[in-house]
Simulated scan of single mutants.
Amino acid sequence: MTAPNVRHWARTVRWYLRELMGEAEYDRYCERHRHRHAGAPVPTRREYDALRTRRREERPEGRCC
């Protein structure tokens, strides 16, 4: 394997793992928050997870249980 191929493979694996673990979702949320609420503090990852869980419980979408 050449060095560019290894770097491409490593970036692909990193992207996949970040999507799988939800890190990319939090990063996208932070960017939206900074854009829409300039100057307001960005919630921590823990606060974001609590918000997301609360929102899912309050408004279930397409869940049978």
Rank of each mutant, 00 (worst) to 15 (best):
T2R: 05
Y26D: 07
T53R: 14
D27A: 08
R36S: 13
A40P: 01
P43Y: 09
R59T: 03
V42T: 07
Y16Q: 09
D27S: 06
R32E: 15
R56V: 02
R11V: 06
E31L: 05
H33S: 10
T12Q: 14
H37D: 13
L17E: 15
D49R: 03
P60F: 05
E58N: 02
A24N: 13
R63W: 04
R55D: 09
G22D: 14
T44G: 03
R18G: 04
E57M: 08
L51G: 11
R55L: 07
V42D: 05
H8S: 05
Y16R: 06
E57D: 03
R7S: 04
M1V: 02
A24C: 02
R32Q: 09
E19C: 11
R18E: 15
Y48G: 03
E19F: 09
R46V: 06
P60V: 02
Y26N: 05
E57K: 04
E57W: 07
G39P: 02
A38F: 08
G22C: 07
H35Q: 10
T53M: 07
E58L: 07
W15H: 15
M21K: 10
H37Y: 13
Y29W: 15
D49M: 08
L51I: 01
R28Q: 13
R45H: 12
A40T: 01
E25N: 09
G62P: 00
C65A: 13
P4A: 08
R14F: 12
H37T: 12
P41A: 00
R14S: 14
R46F: 05
M1Q: 03
H33Y: 15
R36C: 08
L20A: 14
P43W: 04
A40L: 08
R36P: 01
A24P: 01
R34I: 11
H33R: 11
R36E: 15
G22T: 12
R11C: 13
A3P: 01
C30A: 06
E47Q: 15
Y16E: 10
A50N: 06
A38T: 06
E31T: 13
R11Q: 15
G62W: 00
Y16T: 14
H35E: 14
D27I: 06
N5A: 09
T44S: 10
H8G: 10
T12P: 00
G62V: 01
A3I: 05
R59H: 05
H8P: 02
A50V: 09
C64P: 01
Y29G: 03
R52Q: 09
L17F: 09
R36T: 14
R14N: 14
E57C: 10
